[in-house]
Design a protein around this nucleic acid. Sequence first.
DNA 1: TCTTAAATATGACTGCGGTCATTTATGACC
DNA 2: GGTCATAAATGACCGCAGTCATATTTAAGA
Lengths: 202, 202
Amino acid sequence: MSLRAKKKQETKKRIFEVSGKLFKEKGFDNTTVDEITKEAGIAKGTFFNYFPTKESLLFYFREQKEELIFDILEFHIASDIPARNKIKDFLVLLAENYEQDKELMRLLFFEHKRILMTSRTSDDGKKKKHNYKRMISILCAFLKEGMENNEIKGNIDLKIASETLHAIYFHSLMIWLHSDMDYSFSGDISSKIDIIFEGIGV
Amino acid sequence: MSLRAKKKQETKKRIFEVSGKLFKEKGFDNTTVDEITKEAGIAKGTFFNYFPTKESLLFYFREQKEELIFDILEFHIASDIPARNKIKDFLVLLAENYEQDKELMRLLFFEHKRILMTSRTSDDGKKKKHNYKRMISILCAFLKEGMENNEIKGNIDLKIASETLHAIYFHSLMIWLHSDMDYSFSGDISSKIDIIFEGIGV
DNA sequence: TCTTAAATATGACTGCGGTCATTTATGACC
DNA sequence: GGTCATAAATGACCGCAGTCATATTTAAGA
């Protein structure tokens, strides 16, 4: 790796770390880009060579957090249980992870405008799969196994079913983040997964 | 109504109209609060007596648009058809309404930070039901009728089922808004409603 | 090592959203 | 109409995100 590339990588990391520290200390709104760059030992303009906006940092924070938990969860779901339980375990564990810091999650989900879902190309050229697509893949794999074990109807479109599962997960999360009440939304998700498995029609 | 109240109402309406016109003409980002107030014949500070931020206008635009379509839809769904069809008709018509102007919908959903879902008290003191709750009520009513006609299992929690339906509607909308592809998402919703009615489990 | 082009860093500057102390208009009461 | 209290309007002002012309650093080729 060239000197240039190394410096670039280090600067980006430094901005990331410093801003994370300052956001924790004083909150997102009370931290200025000036402060971040001062503390990181770079000029203000340099910040915008690395991140298009101050808000965009939140998007990267969230992405990083999600990647971390996905890495953990993906390989820690028991393989010898029915698909429905796998899916429940996965989404409930995800929910419980989020429940640990509601204020942080609100910041990461609400304080930037677009909830980005499109894939992007990272700096090192490797095409990164966006977390939404990754999550759909994981759910789809669970469903596929379930179908092979005759736990799931054979005529179901797995992509549509995965999206439906993601929909109820995402919706529960949004409602929870908006709510001032202090309830656990993992239980909420669990009962909705049952609905999707059993259907509401007679 | 007092002179004061009348003036207030007129000013609010004027800001609303002028900003709507300017946003259409030049886009949201290219319209400044200065321009809006100049055109509305008021001082800049006055704007913030009526709307907390420039962004918040978008929230009110969306709310107004939703109220309008809900008013129309709520009373135009045939009553002599099965619950599943009522729900499909309702959500598909809603989707088709949104499909008419994707760019506008993106603006209304993405350009302000929080997707507000909490209810609020309007100026005239009447407690207004937020559109999310209104939608849940409508879906719940459909489901209740369906349950009475034995189209829906008797042991289903209607609130949870309504929320699940809203989840798939909202999710389909989000995916569509994020997508650059030019597809219709009303069909998407329809097949997901089927999943919720029939279930994916064997 | 010298030259040159391209990548990156810089910070003064700009534009705009939002604030607030002050002024003006309204309504209530006599 | 005159007096006072309160609501609303005002616009100078401020802070900060984001820009951009210029300066500096790196890489590559001779």
